[in-house]
Write a protein that binds this DNA or RNA. Sequence first.
DNA 1: CCCTGATTCGC
DNA 2: GCGAATCAGG
Length: 184
Amino acid sequence: MAWTEDRVETLKKLWSDGLSASQIAKQLGGVTRNAVIGKVHRLGLSGRAAPSRPARRPAPRPAPRPAAKPVAAKASPQAAPAKAKPVVAEAKPAALVAPQDAARLPNGEYATVLTLREGMCKWPIGDPTDTEFRFCGRHSGVGNAYCEAHAQLAYQPQAKRKRKPGDDAKAVLDSLQSARRVNL
DNA sequence: CCCTGATTCGC
DNA sequence: GCGAATCAGG
């Protein structure tokens, strides 16, 4: 899986939101947490709010590393779960999960990873590990990752983005200019 | 053991 | 540039 513009933007967003690398990897799909961490470092946005201890690293340089391991054949046990989650269920997702916004789809549901499609705002809302996790889902326009309102947030820090010919960034910037202020 | 991010280095 | 392997920790 390649690091497309959308995936990088999502990565930046989720990372700055404080989600762990494994959580981000799980949501993006097709990548491991190592890939996420590696990408984060290459993007130069390693530092953020510290969920875990800083943990210094003097780099002791131990023994050399053999190329690859022969991958031990290991059938997945898939043991019986039998772990009924008490879970508070969906009592009141509104107050807990999304004080922000999430557009209702025509069928009354929210946009999830399964229902999110082209032309829908991909702005993530809530905890990706939570069942209540959803996307904004508003109309984003063809070729745009976010709706006008979230495009402002997504592209705000980097107001000056390179605008290559044919790049959809132009459409986003046009949206920014016409959007002005939108209630979030 | 589960998890976290950090780093190295073959590809 | 990418990410598995590995490390150092909580």
